[in-house]
Amino acid sequence: LFLGSPGQKHEFFVDMTCEGCSNAVTRVLHRLGGVQFDIDLPNKKVCIDSEHNVDTLLETLKKTGKNTSYLGEKSAQ
């Protein structure tokens, strides 16, 4: 079980190419709920602060049908 440390955000790579992609990511994350996130479209990164574990977040992002992977924890600024 991986819970992550408090004050850390999870960073994911999501192969987004346009605004349609980032909107799709926004929708699936909103539907999951319990997440705060930033999407960096040019760098194809999604940074998530959430009560959900990494597996749940990864599964949710993969629903978009885009290539997705977990990059690691990122310190909150």
Partner: peptide, 16 residues
């Protein structure tokens, strides 16, 4: 609703 380009189109076509 929500598709903006051809890659959106292809993603749906491939997935479904």
């Amino acid at each position: 609703e929500g598709m903006t380009c051809n890659s959106c189109v292809q993603t749906i076509e491939q997935h479904v």
